[in-house]
Design a binder for these strands. Sequence first.
DNA 1: GCTGGCACTCTATCACCATGAGTGCCAAAC
DNA 2: GTTTGGCACTCATGGTGATAGAGTGCCAGC
Lengths: 346, 346
Amino acid sequence: MALSELSERAQQLLKALTERYIRDGQPVGSRTLARDAGLQLSPATIRNVMADLEDLGLVRSPHTSAGRIPTVLGYRMFVDTLLTVQPLESRVVEVMKASLDGDDGSGKLVGSASELLSDVTRMAGIVSLPRSEHAALQRVEFIPLTQRKVLAILVVSNKEVQNSIIDTDRDYSASELQEVSNYLNAQFAGKELSDVRIRLVEELRETRESLNSMMQTALQMADQVLGTAEQGEDYVLAGQTNLLDFDELCNAGTMRQLFEAFNEKSHILKLLDQCVQGRGVQIFIGEESGYEMLDECSVVTAPYTVDGEILGVLGVIGPTRMAYERVIPIVDATARILSAALNLRK
Amino acid sequence: MALSELSERAQQLLKALTERYIRDGQPVGSRTLARDAGLQLSPATIRNVMADLEDLGLVRSPHTSAGRIPTVLGYRMFVDTLLTVQPLESRVVEVMKASLDGDDGSGKLVGSASELLSDVTRMAGIVSLPRSEHAALQRVEFIPLTQRKVLAILVVSNKEVQNSIIDTDRDYSASELQEVSNYLNAQFAGKELSDVRIRLVEELRETRESLNSMMQTALQMADQVLGTAEQGEDYVLAGQTNLLDFDELCNAGTMRQLFEAFNEKSHILKLLDQCVQGRGVQIFIGEESGYEMLDECSVVTAPYTVDGEILGVLGVIGPTRMAYERVIPIVDATARILSAALNLRK
DNA sequence: GCTGGCACTCTATCACCATGAGTGCCAAAC
DNA sequence: GTTTGGCACTCATGGTGATAGAGTGCCAGC
């Protein structure tokens, strides 16, 4: 029997079993399921079906005389085809909206979203910082420091400010730098960062022969600054400590790996990057993520957008045995709410 | 018998007991101690002495037929009067120096010091960010944003840059703001932030009657900016996850409280603040810190300085049962090394 | 194809016991 | 009077059955 042609009944049993196991963390036996699943079947029949499910790799038993628990494959089928997500009550959505309302400044919004996720789900909330590519450059300013160092300030989209110190090939006077920034502001203010980048390269090529070395350095500086501005991929995490409450994660090593991954960031970032692909809610169950430290965890993510453009990803990290039917709509809703909030402040 | 007049022998036994307990975490019995302490005494005699130590509150037994373990008071006496700290081998110091050398920019230095502490001690390293009070103000710059918002940029001591967005009572043109920053730079550039603050207040008083409202706002703006610049107390933590390896801390609740304290920061900051008082290495054992979440922990700190002026505090957080004789010189050395490094880059 | 029945397996729990580490106290020895 | 050996006592630990309970697989009958 192939996975695809799983009988209606088998599916229903897998669903009941998974729900039950998620609820109380104990392996589920045939007797329990006979009572619980709503089907009028004897335990014996259910045992037969469960044996099939086990052959298909959807469930397994920890030992001979224990009930069954879902495998990763079982969870996968559960969330893909069996899950009934109840939509969030509008009351809850209102509360969530409210808790994102108080803040202004996109930095804080992201932090609040992360805390919101962790508070509502009692797991770890994660929000990647919005990509700045499509933000508009508002102003560039250069301030001379000492010995061939210049402080460049980039004001992006009214809110975010980025500094970077750049090394120059010679000293520049304040008035020279003023000239540079005036030129750049005249040329590029109000344009999107990605646009700026492209036009910068063009200008560099065009003016190569022209003698104005001032402009040359201006462009080079700008290029340098933009480079540092765009690389800043990062995320905000909240409620890591909630994970300490799940005893299934509390093996000495597991938890440690997990926290180290949070500190290291690069792995988690790669994972979040993958989530930008699909439009809606994405779910990685256990080892599906491909990162060892997340073997015992599931990750539920959704992208958030401004003007239909994906700016970043948010989500929740918790044990494989999580209440998907609750978490999924929460992540979905939070993504929408954050998107809406960002659209407003645009 | 009072604490002060503890017999030579009793002291030696307390020392041996504490060292032994720190080494292998088991309650220490009279027989072990008889073998271990180097005194030619029978277990029975040692039992008598231990009973005295217990009466004085220096040791206790977890249950009737277990050996003794030091109390907080016992640890206190141990570190205060009994401890023999072996100085670090110069080879080790060299390695530590080297690991702080690669970096430049004080922000990174602090991070590296924190990692150094946690790596060498296998516990959590913590370094408070240097206070900026005594840093010199290099430049102030104002950039107009939109609708009554002005971006203020503070360049401090060549390295650190602080932004803050301030709300103004009306719109200012770029040239007005230029005028303001010119004035402030002329007046205050190169002065210490704390000086600036004082002179700012003076000027505000003096010019109150004079009509130049431009200058008034200039001063008010500067005041606002300085306020945000100085409040930025913070610290860098490294190796929290090392703490997960100590089973004595791995009670569900304890570890959670600890990590939440790390996230919250304010409590830890208060504790670090207290350490600025004493000049040298300070030690808080268990509940001595006064913070419940640190009841099972000890904190070893030392201030770091530039020009003899205390800039901040660094230290190590670990279980009460830590190898003080190793940790103390490490913390001490790290403080010296960081101080030296900061002095160089001044 | 479903079901009841039955033998079997494995875990969890409890009581029980022996062991060993350690204590406190006391009386004798130094 | 300090030290010591001896002794009775306590308590945690670890092993051993015995037992109960949950659950399974399989088979024969409906």
